[in-house]
Design a protein around this nucleic acid. Structure first.
Length: 729
DNA sequence: AAAAAAC
């Protein structure tokens, strides 16, 4: 349209509706008189999109004559203008316009075809001349554009650079994948669905046959009977009740600290059958201790247990002291839910609404998994819940779905109020995990009209703040950015009535605990608190004591390493040959994650692999968030099959079909071992974990494996050993 | 040692 090229500058800025000006102010009709402009003020309040703005403008001007203007609209741009003036003539401002539009009326046809008429009018306006001058200025700009040609040529030079990089081919493929994603981003729903596909895959695959054979696994365990340092056992007590009570087999490890006022016990008579903390009944606690003492009396105490007792009996134990050792925290007693009990249950049975159930089905969660069946009810009742379920066992839905349902039920009249403060908060230890949780929770929330947003660092905060300004219901993020935005007054947590800590025990690690405590203190007092982790143990006591009331602990019976499909191997290698062995392990087709203790070593390994023509990428905290996100994306898309990561990827991160986890450095904590190895063996598939240790670490490793309840052969290997290649599959 | 904030 020619008119769209008319300069817009002639009109005083103050008369611009910024909504128009922002996109194509030049398309404005230049004929309006000042009176017209004065009249326009009241029309601007109505929204407009970029399409056919002139029409809309006229609609407003002649709002009373819409039907008639509608008929003219079809004719063309000039008609519209004229109609608009004409329409206005019929109204209060008509007189003014007629003053000016008299001629045009008579010459309507001419006006349309005769652009000369417009010329003089423009001259009448002082503003228009400068506009034309501006146009002149544009020409040189076009010349500049011509200059861009050579620049593009420069860009062509970049191609060879890409060739230099081995990754170039796949990168282009990745870029192709990104385009649709961006498009998805515009339509957040589809995007989320795409992302959601990942979540559901996890859950679907978690529907492992082996797990459902949990009963068998449990029996196997009980039958094995070998004490281990962890001591947590699913067992039946004298009354035939299922109980999972560390104290029952490892009394020495029981967390009751008499004399310190820190008595807790599992109260199996608690309502809902949930395990629970009880700090208020010391005498009862003593009873339980006595009871378990007789039960386990015959079993000799292990060295680990004695160490635990010593620590337990120490007058004062600081969090730091506990951190310095691979502490086996008292495993929380809990209500163990039998997988068999869940058979035939639906999410609807558990109290979730139809929309949420549909959203879950879309996610691939057709029916609830044990941990979900265990926690959804109590969460809907408003209980403070501690959930322990193996990574990928459906914990995200176990807290996410009932959280959404609870928010929905509690929603008062003002739904979706602009700028409303979030009512729920989910905190995760890493950004990748926060993003992953959002992929699952967001579609559930959206199914009932609730909104989520991620609040984590490493990315510009503008988008996050924008979402918060508009108003969201659920915030999912990491501690740093949450505190940051709160300090800036951009995140109001005072209305948060449900707070979730994923990987809760990890969130209680040194360095994490205090920020998490500060954040929880900002939430609504008396709000519901949910703590989840695959390795939930007494480490969360600091939070439980302060924030949870009558917490219920739930887990799935028999869900342990024995019930998995992971083969564990320990390779004893000479320190000097370590890298060669790792390289030999990495030189395989399958998807592999290699864990390194430090970022630097992770980078070194990637470099080494590249030199050996093994395509690999790194994932650690020294990378900027864009690289982190991109790298894990490339890995999960299968573009690159070897990921070398620090423990940033140890917890929660789900990638399909990882069939080998290599621990280039052995973990210090048994929990780290469990989380790292939990990256493989998913979906009931075979997975293998290979841990490399130096000779002098055999004893330590053996102790750690006991605590993790894992059996693994130790083998001495040297580089080139066919066994290595064999294990790498 | 790693993780978690920085427009």
């Amino acid at each position: 349209m020619p008119k769209s090229k008319k300069p817009a500058g002639g009109r005083p800025v103050k008369n611009f509706d910024p909504r128009y000006a922002s996109k194509s102010g030049g398309s404005r009709k230049p004929r309006w008189s000042r009176d017209d402009r004065a009249q326009r003020g009241g029309f601007d309040s109505r929204g407009s999109s970029s399409h056919e703005r002139d029409d809309r403008r006229f609609d407003r001007d002649s709002s009373g004559d819409r039907p008639s203007t509608g008929g003219y609209r079809a004719r063309g741009g000039d008609d519209r203008r004229f109609d608009g003036a004409r329409g206005g003539a019929g109204r209060q401002d008509g007189a003014r316009r007629f003053d000016r539009d008299d001629r045009p009326r008579d010459d309507r046809g001419g006006r349309r075809f005769d652009s000369d008429n417009r010329g003089p009018r423009r001259f009448e306006r002082d503003d228009r001349a400068p506009r034309r001058f501006d146009r002149d200025d544009r020409a040189p700009r076009r010349f500049d554009r011509d200059d861009r040609g050579p620049r593009r040529f420069d860009r062509d030079d970049r191609a060879p650079r890409r060739f230099d990089r081995d990754d170039r081919g796949p990168r282009r493929f990745d870029r192709d994948d990104r385009a649709p994603r961006r498009f998805d981003r515009d339509d957040r729903a589809p995007r989320r669905f795409d992302r959601d596909d990942r979540g559901p895959r996890r859950f679907d695959r978690d529907d492992r046959a082996p797990r459902r054979f949990d009963g068998d696994a449990r029996e196997g365990r009980a039958g094995r009977g070998a004490p281990n340092d962890r001591g947590g056992r699913f067992d039946r007590d004298a009354r035939g009740h299922n109980r999972f009570d560390r104290g029952a087999q490892g009394g020495g490890r029981r967390f009751d600290r008499e004399g310190q006022g820190d008595r807790r016990r599992f109260d199996r008579d608690a309502p809902h059958g949930g395990g629970r903390f009880d700090n208020r009944a010391p005498s009862a606690s003593a009873d339980v201790v006595a009871d378990t003492a007789t039960t386990e009396g015959a079993r000799p105490q292990t060295a680990g247990e004695r160490a635990w007792q010593e620590r337990r009996d120490a007058p004062q134990r600081t969090a730091q002291q506990e951190q310095q050792i691979d502490v086996v925290h008292e495993r929380l007693t809990a209500e163990a839910v039998e997988a068999a009990e869940v058979e035939g249950q639906t999410f609807g049975d558990l109290g979730l609404g139809d929309n949420i159930c549909r959203a879950l089905a879309d996610l691939g969660a057709a029916s609830p998994f044990p941990i979900q069946a265990a926690t959804i009810g109590p969460i809907l009742e408003g209980k403070d819940v501690l959930g322990r379920g193996r990574t990928g066992s459906g914990k995200t839905i176990a807290f996410g779905a009932p959280m959404v349902e609870a928010l929905l039920r509690g929603r008062d009249g003002g739904r979706r109020a602009f700028g409303r403060a979030p009512q729920a908060l989910i905190v995760a230890p890493t950004r990748e995990l926060a993003l992953q949780i959002d992929r699952t929770v967001q579609p559930i929330a959206r199914s009932v009209g609730l909104f989520t947003t991620q609040v984590y660092g490493g990315v510009p905060q503008g988008k996050q703040v924008g979402a918060l300004k508009k108003g969201v219901d659920i915030v999912i993020g990491t501690p740093g950015r949450i505190e940051d935005l709160h300090a800036q007054g951009k995140l109001d947590l005072s209305e948060v009535k449900i707070a979730v800590l994923d990987e809760a025990d990890h969130m209680c690690d040194l360095g994490f605990l205090e920020p998490v405590q500060r954040i929880l203190r900002l939430t609504k007092e008396g709000g519901q608190k949910l703590l989840f982790s695959a390795t939930l143990d007494r480490e969360v006591s600091a939070l439980v004591d302060e924030f949870l009331k009558d917490p219920q602990v739930y887990e799935v019976a028999g869900e342990d390493q024995d019930s998995g499909t992971i083969d564990h191997q320990v390779l004893v290698v000479d320190q000097r040959s370590k890298r060669d062995v790792i390289e030999q392990l990495a030189d395989r087709g399958g998807r592999t994650i290699i864990f390194s203790r430090t970022r630097a070593f992770a980078d070194q390994l990637v470099e080494q692999f590249e030199d050996a023509d093994i395509r690999a990428i790194a994932l650690h905290g020294d990378l900027n968030q864009a690289k982190r996100t991109r790298n894990i994306e490339r890995f999960s898309k299968g573009r690159i099959s070897v990921l070398v990561a620090t423990d940033v990827a140890a917890r929660g991160i789900h990638v399909d079909d990882v069939d080998l986890v290599v621990q280039a450095d052995a973990p210090d904590e048994y929990k780290t071992y469990l989380h790292r190895s939990g990256r493989t063996g998913r979906a009931g598939r075979e997975g293998r974990v290979i841990t490399l240790i130096p000779r002098n670490r055999r004893r330590r490793m053996s102790d750690l494996l006991k605590r993790a309840e894992i059996d693994a052969p130790f083998r001495d290997v040297t580089p080139g050993d066919p066994l290595i290649t064999e294990l790498a599959g």
